[in-house]
Amino acid sequence: MEKVGLFLGCNIPFRAPDIEKAFRSILPEFGIEPVDLEGASCCPAWGTAPSFDLDTWLSLSGRNISLAEEKGVDITTGCNSCFGVLSEAKHMIEHKPGKFDVVNEKLKLIGREYKGTSKIYHIMHLLYAIIGPEKIKEKIKYNFEGIKVALQQGCHSVWPSDVYEVKEENPFFPIHLKTIVEATGAEAPHYSRIEDCCGMGAMSSSDREKSLQTFKRKISSIKEEIDPDVVVTGCSSCYLQFDGSQKVLKERGDIDFEIPVFHVTQFLAIALGFDPKLVAGICQVSRDEIVKEMQSEKRLVK
């Protein structure tokens, strides 16, 4: 793969563009040029068209995918919602009877066509299956030996496994993110609630207390069982939940700790030696101390 279409979504370019910067920084290091999909819209998010009308969802997602098709590139994203919505839409357009024609009829209204030529990769899948841990090991500038990571893969990268381009061997025991993180030298031990939901998404927008309850169960389990230095997420929504809701729980006296959080692209960008102010500079829970440790001179790979 020489080029890949960068599907940004909403949260990454607006709220956490340091993740976007991390994408743009690391991909060329691995020999892949990120290509912009100009005019890409919301995927559309689960609470919008998918909740109202199936064909409208498929045509909006179809339009986004057609932007990559026009450029002859596959798509990658770091938001699990975008990944899930686009992957499921692609699967339905291509496999649900009649949908391919319905979508193209709609897209004709705006002079576009869905062909089905672009694949959709989560950035974790791209890093694991296309780039591979050996190449990551070759490129790291700082070795993260001794740094303990709590993994947060996120829901829409593993389930439903039948619609995704790259699949985990056991979708309830995912190893893609673990393999990527361990390629930096860091350790990523198992914990009992590793595949639990973080509580972001519709749960958060429809009942914030239920969302915080779900998040508290998970973050407490992480702290008690493995007491990590950092959390690394595969998903930008999980990232926002872990970064933002620890603050909320701490202020309410529900937890008495804070663990710095990174999106996997940021974690790798730090390992590759990029400027943390640019690739990991926007957060609620401070990452200053751990970043200093991660990029300390003693860790430089000779």
């Binding site: 689960w46 609470g47 919602s81 829409h156 939901c197 998404g201 519709a202 749960m203 239920k210």
Partner: peptide
């Protein structure tokens, strides 16, 4: 409306 669409 609380469904996470997680697909477990």
């Amino acid at each position: 409306w609380g469904c996470q669409a997680c697909n477990r």
